[in-house]
Structure formats: structure tokens, C-alpha cells
Design a protein around this nucleic acid. Sequence first.
DNA 1: CGACCTCTTGATCGATGTCAAAAGGTGTGG
DNA 2: CCACACCTTTTGACATCGATCAAGAGGTCG
Lengths: 213, 213
Amino acid sequence: MRQIIDERTGGTVRPPYGTEPHCPTVRIAAHVTVLHEGDPARRIMEVVEGAVMLSKLLPDGRRQVVELLGPGDVFGLAHADIYACSAETLTPATINTHERGALERDPVLAARLLRRFEAQLCVMHAHALMLGRMSALERVAFFLLRLMPDGMVGTTLHLSMTRQEIADFLGLTLETVSRAFSELKRRGLVVLQRADEVRIQDRGSMRRLAGAL
Amino acid sequence: MRQIIDERTGGTVRPPYGTEPHCPTVRIAAHVTVLHEGDPARRIMEVVEGAVMLSKLLPDGRRQVVELLGPGDVFGLAHADIYACSAETLTPATINTHERGALERDPVLAARLLRRFEAQLCVMHAHALMLGRMSALERVAFFLLRLMPDGMVGTTLHLSMTRQEIADFLGLTLETVSRAFSELKRRGLVVLQRADEVRIQDRGSMRRLAGAL
DNA sequence: CGACCTCTTGATCGATGTCAAAAGGTGTGG
DNA sequence: CCACACCTTTTGACATCGATCAAGAGGTCG
């Protein structure tokens, strides 16, 4: 079972290995839930290193992964002083935490967050287009391109998400994600060394499937 | 046909009735496209009054309405100095425009935008949950509750969107949206005085359908 | 009244969800 | 090193929701 550290049980996000308590920068293991949707929102966090997944739940348990975050991205946002999403590390991660009040006091921080929010909002717009209008195959192609910076062509990408997590991100079921991977492989657009190691073989076709990007 | 005013043809967003050119606050008629996805991003805009719809297109013409904006909301965001979305007024609207550079110079503006971006990001997270995980009926219920501030119970809401626009917002087809309205009416959760005038009859059931909110 | 929209409703089809079983991988203990 | 248990992934069969195609109803404006 995955370890859970949160503000309710600990009072503070506590790094698994020695750092001062309340230190703004913490190191967190993979698969740790850092924030819970619905908890009182005391802090804003920045990913320094590693990957973090934000998700929301419906009352009956249906889950949507709403954002995938990497270095520089910000989370811990709130409506009415309540966290809007849960946050879970996908890999070991380094995270910077700020008191909410620091936003008013620190204009440099505020400027950085403003730029970052703009970028994340644009990514969310693209995500909405994907969720609302793309087929399963297109979604998976879109997902893989998103994880593959243009630089790393022919490189092998390590997916640090299960099929279920990918499905929850793409608004599909894990079976449909698996079938889409198989179809991309069958068409020669992608090579799967293992279930979690992908190489993009035909970037042009992938782009066409994903509709630009 | 709907009138189109954009930066390519005019150089400036020009209000339909007399205001100085380059005046930061403009009045715009309903159904006017204010920004085009892909155009060079020179300005950031704030809705002062009225409603604005942001949308994105796939190369083959599929459309997703990614945000519905009201007073206070901000648009004109950019990735790589290119507008990420098109923006179209749904009603006559008053809009405030700022040069992008003003963000660095005006800390008060920056602080306001920061707060607003946070709120819009939270709304996008909810939108992603809706698009990825809700049924057609749930989406329409969610949509109607979103337009109905808690205050106005029993009030009649005027929809300033066509079924097609609602469908593009909810990731459905116009026929499915129409059927969902009929089903909500049949179940007595909603009264439709006309196609574009709705009253919520049973807010509890609507909430349950929409999954909180 | 008639033309033109938009909306509603019906019939059918297909993509994706659901349910189920088998295959593949990984870690543990003998 | 092998055997077993456990978990994830893949694949198959079938069901279902929403898309598509098509026709008709309702509203608005000339």
C-alpha cells in the first residue's frame, strides 16, 4: 500500500529523510499523497524536482487526474480556503512550500507564480480540448507527445504512471489505454520495450494523431 | 453571420460605438470574436461586464469551449507569444485591455491577475473532472448549476448559448445536450419556459447529479 | 404567410466501457 | 535458483452510451 503523509496526520509535510521541520524545501518519496482535496489550504507548493499528479474525486469514487506537474509547476490551489485537488508524487520529488500569506509579502514569488499559472492555465485548455474532443487513440498519442520534449527524439521514455493513472488522466479506462498502446505499437508509431518504457518511432504520425502540439 | 473583429484585420480591438482608439476599456457587441487562437499575443484582457467564451479548435474543425468567463475573469493568455484560445462574446460585453508589458510595471494589476488565475485554474480542474468522468446528464446538470449562483433559487436563467455552444463546452453533441435537457425536464428537475430559459426546480437532485458543486 | 434558424425526437451505428480470463513481471521464501 | 503469490497489463466478448443521420416541430423575422 502506498504511504500517505498529509497535513491532517502530521500537521506538516515532513520529508522522509532528515530536514528541519517547517523547512520550506522538502524531499518526498514516490507515491506519497502530499495534499488532500478538501483539506484546509494553508500552503502553496512548487515542484523543484520530480513529478506530481493532481487529481479530483467524484462522490462515488470516479477519479480524474487533472494535471501532471514537473519542475517549476505550482500546486496547492484553493477555492474558499480548501484545496481543490489532491496531490501525489509520481517519482521521488523535491518540493518548495510557501505560506499563503507569503504571496502578498513577496512580489518576486508572486511574479513567478503569475507566469507559471498562465502556463498551467494554457496546458489546462489543451487538456480540456483533449478530454472533450479526442478519440482514445488520439488521447494516448497526445499524452506521449506531451511527455516527450522535442529534444529527446528516439530516446526511451520511462512512464512513471500505471495504466490506471494514465486512464484517469485521459478520461478513459485502463483497458482502453492498454488497447491504444497496442494499436500504436501495431501501427509502428511506438515501440514498447516494457509496459512502462516507450520510444516514439514515428513522430510525424503521432503529431497528426494528436492534432498539432 | 456573426461579425468578426480581430487584431489581424483592425490592428486593435475596436469597440462598435465611439471610444478612443487604444482606450483600455472597450464595449463590444454580442457574438464578436475578440481574439483568435494562434494570433500574436499582445494584450491581456479582463471581462468587466458580460460573458465571454474561450475555445480551441482541432485541425479538422472539432471545437472545444474551454472556459466561460464573467466579470473579473481574465483572458488573452499565451504560450510562446501566441494566443492559446479564441475569445468570443456571448453577450454585449465591456472589456479592459492591458499591454502584456504592464504586468511587470503594475504590481497591483499583477496581484489581481494572480488571484484570478488561481480561481480560473480551480474552475478548469472542475471542468476536467466533468469532461473526463461525467455522463451526459451529469454534465448538463453541472453546467446549469454552474450558471446558477446559489442566491438565485427559483429564478429563471437566460442561456446566452446555443445547444451547439453548450455541447462544445460539455464535450457532447448538440443532440445529446437537447436530449439531456428533455430528460431533466421529464424528471421534473428543471423547467424550460423556452429553449433558452431555464428554471431549476429541484436543486437537491441537480446537485446529486452534478456530484457536489 | 413563408423562409430560415434552432431545437427536438427517432432510428441506427460504433467507440468505449464492462466483465472476465489469461499473460507477463516482480519480489519473497524455500 | 526455482516456485509461488501478487500485481499489472493485455486480450477477448459483450453491453451501453452517446454520435451520427434524418426528419419534423417550433420560433422569429421579413
